[in-house]
């Protein structure tokens, strides 16, 4: 596809722009148009081929691996996410399909399905604690860790992409269904309100606020 085509797209959170808490405490932004593939297959049978094609090796449970711009996330014992830059996924899917022919597997393009939200900063952990039962302490959830869980009432996959030591604090990436992305965005902003993040009204326009 060409640049003219990419201009026609609308990412799940295109109506939002990056918001920040005070004093760089936290930053919330969408990472639009990442390539995302779900790869199903028995790791014992596909690992070598996948590494050959994608570069990164298949991660162990609840971890992610990276090679250049491509990351592989473990999301289940026979399920992996491959995250690529914009538009790189289609060719990769093709190559994987060919390389894995004859081995039982499935490669599915979910680039449009899931929104990617980056949450960065020293207060990111504190914000996530308000949404998930995962242990978000820095000793418990570390760089390269991946976990599927509930965040508020939305299921999402959480991945720590940058360590706490790096400038700007830890960075967490959340993959969430595009239909739930706005809900999660608003809930994250609410969690950051304590540190000065602006509140966000939901896109659905529907509210349960009691009014008389």
């Amino acid at each position: 596809m060409t640049d003219t085509h990419t201009a026609l797209r609308r990412s799940p959170l295109a109506h939002r722009s990056t918001i920040k808490a005070m004093e760089h405490a936290a930053r919330l932004s969408e990472v639009p148009f990442l390539g995302k593939l779900i790869l199903r297959g028995d790791p014992a049978k596909i690992a070598k081929t996948v590494t050959g094609v994608a570069g990164a090796s298949l991660p162990t449970a609840c971890r992610a691996t990276r090679k250049g711009d491509t990351a592989i996330l473990w999301t289940g014992p026979d399920e992996f996410w491959i995250v690529t830059p914009d538009n790189a996924h289609a060719a990769l899917a093709d190559k994987l399909g060919k390389a894995l022919s004859g081995i039982h597997h499935q490669v599915t393009d979910v680039s449009s399905y899931y929104a990617a939200i980056d949450l960065a900063g020293p207060k990111a952990r504190g914000m996530l604690m308000k949404l998930t039962t995962l242990d978000m302490d820095r000793s418990a959830f570390t760089e390269g860790e991946v976990a599927g869980s509930n965040f508020g009432a939305a299921q999402a996959t959480l991945w720590q992409t940058a360590s706490d030591e790096e400038k700007g604090g830890p960075v967490f990436r959340l993959f969430v269904r595009r239909s739930m992305a706005d809900y999660l965005w608003c809930l994250l902003a609410e969690a950051g309100f304590e540190w000065g993040m602006p509140r966000q009204a939901p896109l659905s326009g529907e509210t349960w606020r009691l009014e008389r």
Partner: peptide
């Protein structure tokens, strides 16, 4: 497969 998690998952 994933280790210890809250029942709500």
């Amino acid at each position: 497969y994933c280790g210890t998690r809250d029942q709500s998952e």
